Computed example of a mutant assay.
Amino acid sequence: MTDTMPPLPWGRETIETILPHRDPFVWVSRIVAIDPGASIEGELDVPADLDLFRGHFPNHPVLPGVIIMEALAQCASIAVLQDPDLRGCIGFLTGIDKAKFRRQVAPGETVTLKATIVKSSRRLVVADVEASVDGETCATATQKYVLAPKE
């Protein structure tokens, strides 16, 4: 990653310069707004042909809540990893507090991912996160991540 980031929105190519995740486990399609180290807004396009819908659930496909939480964690990590001292670190999800799921996410929808960084140090990050579709809240939580240097 360079010190100069391209203009927004950031697509998959830029996202993969920040996150260590790769297919099939990148759950952020684009970043549309960012205040590095403080807040971020991204989006996840949920493909209608996503293989996991064959089993979750065959007659009523729903994006699993754990995937929504992972997408939120990846999005929040992108905001945190903009700090030059933290570039190259890996954020490991260590806690999810006050998680609430309010709306199901269906195939073909676009999920808006928002995170506000509440606390950030070289070792621990706390973020308030929210996922929504068309302005309707799907999930909220407070997430905690431990940062580890990439080896």
Rank of each mutant, 00 (worst) to 15 (best):
T4H: 13
W10E: 12
G11P: 07
R12N: 07
E13S: 13
I15W: 10
E16Y: 06
P20G: 12
F25E: 05
W27Y: 07
V28G: 08
V28T: 09
S29V: 01
R30F: 12
V32N: 08
G37L: 02
A38R: 13
S39E: 09
E43K: 05
L44A: 03
D45N: 12
P47Y: 11
A48R: 09
A48P: 03
A48I: 15
F53L: 11
G55H: 06
H60P: 03
P61L: 12
V62H: 00
V62G: 00
V66Q: 01
I68A: 02
M69V: 09
L72V: 01
A79F: 10
A79V: 02
Q82M: 15
P84I: 12
D85W: 07
R87Q: 13
G91E: 01
G95V: 00
I96M: 09
A99R: 04
Q104L: 10
G108A: 03
T112C: 05
T112D: 03
K114Y: 03
V118A: 04
S120R: 14
S121R: 11
R122Q: 12
R123C: 01
L124C: 01
A127W: 00
V129A: 14
E130Q: 12
S132H: 04
D134I: 15
E136F: 06
T137K: 11
A139W: 04
T140V: 15
T142E: 15
K150Y: 03
E151I: 08
